[in-house]
């Protein structure tokens, strides 16, 4: 989150950095040197790697079975035996949170990957080609986007039945559309800039214009968007599970754990609150990570350093 590289505030002179950076530094090196100077960014990276490791090693790490019920240990508050307490079926909350992370991360990652690739490409091509193609594509995307992601998910899950594939299709469909629009906006603006117009007048192919001129300039907004999307994907998955439509109990997901706990909010708040905290912390980490990526990728910063 902190950006030690950019010490200047709004109105200090930014044209000459105090210590001249190695001018020959490639973009990749600049990227990494900015990234590793951000303590919070590194912290979030390590935290996310740790979370991923924990979710992969869930069968080895988690202290109890996430599904087996134990009537003798119902609704226990957090203690030495059960760090985060137990739920109405005597299941250990911590173990269920660990297993729940598998669902959240997997569904989020696959959805964001699919949607970013397809969405950004669609947005750039639509903006550059313009005309009828742009109109038709944007109208279709806009129509899908007009359906709230949660409701699109609800609709598909009602029609096709609740399973992980439907869940991923529903989430990535919504994200693709907003990715396309985020890529299209700046591309439209760039298209009017002299260097792109010059390139078009030389007869450069759309592919070349995208790769050389557009992509490097919109990577920042797209990446920031992808981070927000990881957040949205994990949140929508949790929301659908919360409404009882996502991945079905007894398989633990953070969303259906929160739903379970809602009934005991006054008597046993830990059942609902801890999975919610896990959900929030992981999403915060993704956001901080994305923020740091943004600072490291931002072409304006790179231009200044050269």
């Amino acid at each position: 989150m902190s950006e030690p590289v950019m010490k200047e505030t709004l109105f200090t002179d930014t044209s000459v950095p105090e210590t001249l950076p190695e001018v020959e530094q490639s973009r990749k090196n600049v990227f990494w040197s900015v990234f590793k100077k951000s303590k919070l960014g590194m912290f979030s990276l390590i935290f996310l790697l740790l979370t991923i490791t924990i979710s992969i090693l869930a069968p080895i790490i988690s202290p109890y079975d996430p599904i087996n019920q134990n009537a003798a240990e119902r609704m226990l508050p957090p203690s030495g035996d059960h760090w985060l307490g137990t739920d109405a079926f005597g299941r250990d909350i911590l173990s269920r949170i660990i297993y729940g992370s598998q669902t959240s991360l997997l569904v989020g990652f696959i959805s964001v990957l699919i949607s970013s690739l397809i969405g950004t490409a669609l947005g750039m091509v639509a903006a550059l080609k313009g005309g009828l193609l742009d109109d038709i594509l944007m109208r279709i995307l806009e129509s899908i986007q007009a359906i709230p992601m949660l409701l699109l998910g609800l609709m598909l899950l009602v029609a096709l039945g609740s399973n992980t594939t439907t869940l991923i299709i529903a989430i990535s469909l919504g994200l693709t559309v907003s990715c396309a629009r985020v890529a299209r906006g700046p591309t439209l603006e760039l298209k009017e800039k002299e260097f792109v117009r010059a390139s078009i007048s030389y007869g450069a192919s759309t592919f070349r214009i995208i790769v050389v001129h557009i992509l490097p300039n919109i990577l920042g907004p797209v990446l920031v968007m992808a981070t927000l999307h990881m957040a949205s994907a994990i949140r929508v998955e949790a929301s659908l599970s919360f409404l009882g439509l996502g991945i079905q109990p007894p398989h633990p997901t953070w969303g259906n754990m929160i739903q379970d706990g809602l009934r005991f909010l006054t008597s046993a708040p830990w059942v609902a609150v801890y999975p919610g905290v896990a959900l929030m912390v992981v999403v915060i980490a993704f956001n901080i990570f994305g923020d740091t990526l943004r600072d490291a990728f931002d072409p304006h910063i790179i231009r200044e350093r050269k």
Partner: peptide
């Protein structure tokens, strides 16, 4: 830094979870 932390928490908090916390 505080503003950014608050904004991050706002973005990261699922609406239904903030609702549950406020309700609680």
């Amino acid at each position: 830094a505080l503003v950014r932390l608050f904004a991050l928490m706002g973005i990261s908090m699922p609406a239904f979870f903030l609702g549950i916390l406020l309700l609680l």
